[in-house]
């Protein structure tokens, strides 16, 4: 109801905007039938607007507040009270990136690239190793606690209830999957004997992962179509089309 109320209060500009959105949506969909000039026009306009939006955004969100306002506080409208000349250094590095357009001086662009690579490698490597390798390895092994029964310590067996049996099964499955998949990517020995068996099992795990990935991709793409259909039906047609053509 709220959405319907909002649609009934649309301004002329918003109605024109909805019609443009609908027209561009249908123009892009027309590619499904075959490539055509209407699709090409919509595609080119999209690319142009995206590039323009990006330039304006970087100017207003980065160049002005992070560089020019700090160098010239008098143009910042009160956002900056005093000048900060340290920003000359990143500003100069940024300008050096533009030397890529001049073949004679393009070697200068390697300095800002080296700075960025060094900074992000230094900040990123420890954090990513911790988050993606150490924590993940621990999480792979931790479920094996569920096997504190006869398989490992000879202590009381895994609980007889279904949940703990499943947890134990999952733990073994997870570890088997990790080891076998890793063995598939071990190329220093021929994939024969035990390595041949584990790498073959690894392929099966990979296939299951690809299948899950494909299923999720289908879900995502159908969701995008649903979003467009919702827009065409709810926002555009019920909001503007019916009124325009005199329907209820």
């Amino acid at each position: 109801m709220a959405a319907a109320d909002a649609l009934s209060n649309l301004t002329t500009g918003q109605i024109v905007g909805l019609w443009l959105q609908a027209a561009f949506t249908l123009a892009i969909f027309s590619f499904l039938w075959s490539d055509n000039p209407v699709y090409k026009l919509a595609e080119h306009i999209f690319v142009g607007i995206s590039a323009g939006y990006g330039v304006v955004l970087v100017w207003h969100q980065a160049v002005l507040p992070l560089l020019l306002f700090k160098l010239l506080p008098q143009i910042s409208g009160g956002a900056e009270l005093s000048a900060n000349y340290w920003v000359v250094i990143p500003g100069a590095l940024g300008v050096l990136m533009l030397t890529r357009f001049f073949p004679k001086y393009d070697w200068l662009s390697r300095w800002p690239i080296a700075f960025v690579v060094g900074l992000y490698a230094g900040a990123g490597i420890p954090a990513v190793v911790q988050a993606s390798i150490l924590e993940q390895s621990q999480a792979t092994l931790e479920p094996l606690k569920a096997l504190h029964g006869p398989l490992i310590w000879g202590s009381p067996p895994v609980g007889s209830d279904g949940a703990s049996v499943l947890t134990a099964f999952n733990a073994v499955l997870l570890l088997t999957g990790v080891i076998c998949t890793l063995s598939y990517f071990y190329f220093s020995l021929p994939h024969t004997g035990i390595l041949g068996v584990t790498s073959r099992i690894g392929i099966w795990f990979l296939m299951v992962a690809f299948g899950a990935g494909f299923g999720n991709t289908v879900m995502a793409r159908v969701s995008l179509l649903i979003g467009r259909v919702q827009f065409l039906l709810e926002d555009w047609w019920r909001g503007t089309g019916i009124r325009l053509f005199g329907g209820g």
Binding site: A212, G213, T217, I226
Partner: peptide, 25 residues
């Protein structure tokens, strides 16, 4: 988005993410 789900379930399983909403579902 659902496309990313298989990449991020390991982070949920390892409790690095407290929860995960997967796509439209």
């Amino acid at each position: 988005t659902a496309v990313m789900a298989t990449e991020y379930y390991p982070f949920y399983q390892s409790k690095q993410l407290v929860g995960l909403l997967n796509g439209l579902k």
